[in-house]
């Protein structure tokens, strides 16, 4: 089974987001980078499928060339090779992003049985790239999947809607977008990391379509300063906490 997985490098935020003075970007000078948990689950799912059925996993990532580090992390857990689409510091809008990803996927020598993506990116949260890529590739798409089984070329997908789970089936080739909770992504082993150094990461340049959504600036929404009341510690705090619960009506 040949599987493509789309992953996006994002900053690992702490407890607050700090913007650059012009408000046009997050100040990442003190931040590390990683992937959205959705995409970590996407890679894990792909690696498990290839372990069970044979084939290979190709990663597609679009962004800064420094993202090679995050790509190597995923090669270390078992993906086979990667394509890095260099954006030269430009953030494409979702339409342009999907076109470029679909173009990269369809121009590979490999024909993919399955394209796995995140249900939404951590930073942009557009919830649309997977569906757009599916339309570009002429494939069916199932989204927000939290349970996945593939048998005889048919994927059975589950997704949570309120308190129930919907079951979808789709015949491959297809695009599937997945959510955190689909699996528990493994950690890279030392031999995995060694092997990853030798795997190929092809860097591609693209020119993006004109954006139709243009960012003017970013802001951080105000958080009301709550000025927490300290209840102290130990026995005294336990008694005070019970009083608070009575006050707010959750304990009668």
């Amino acid at each position: 089974m040949e599987i493509a997985v789309c992953i996006k490098r994002v900053p690992l935020l702490g407890s607050a987001i700090v913007l650059t003075p012009d408000g046009m970007a997050i100040d990442t000078s003190k931040l590390g980078f990683g992937l959205s948990p959705h995409e970590e689950c996407a890679v894990e799912a792909a690696v498990q499928l290839v372990e069970a059925n044979g084939g290979s996993v190709t990663l597609f990532s679009m962004g800064h060339v420094d993202g090679e580090e995050q790509i190597r992390d995923q090669l270390a857990i078992g993906a086979d090779r990667a394509v890095l689409i260099d954006t030269n510091g430009v953030e494409p809008d979702p339409q342009a992003a999907a076109s470029a990803l679909a173009e990269a996927i369809s121009t590979e020598d490999t024909t993919f049985d399955l394209v796995i993506m995140g249900s939404e990116s951590a930073d942009y949260g557009g919830s649309q790239t997977g569906i757009r890529v599916a339309h570009k590739l002429g494939l069916p798409v199932v989204t927000s999947v939290k349970g996945l089984k593939i048998e005889g070329g048919v994927a059975t997908c589950e997704r949570a809607v309120g308190s129930i789970r919907e079951v979808y089936t789709v015949t491959l080739p297809a695009v599937i977008t997945v959510r955190d909770g689909l699996n528990i992504p493994r950690y890279a082993s030392v031999p995995g990391r060694m092997k990853a150094r030798k795997k190929s990461v092809d860097i591609k340049q693209v020119t993006f379509d004109e954006p139709r959504i243009t960012t003017k600036k970013f802001t951080i929404p105000d958080r009301e300063a709550k000025g927490a009341t300290s209840l102290g510690s130990g026995d005294e705090a336990a008694a005070a906490l019970v009083d608070v619960l009575k006050q707010i009506g959750v304990l009668t």
């Binding site: 935020l13 949260g125 960012t215 003017k216």
Partner: peptide
């Protein structure tokens, strides 16, 4: 963006 931790003004 970022699940509401950041807002984007756009055209």
């Amino acid at each position: 963006r970022w699940a509401g931790n950041m807002l984007e003004e756009a055209v």
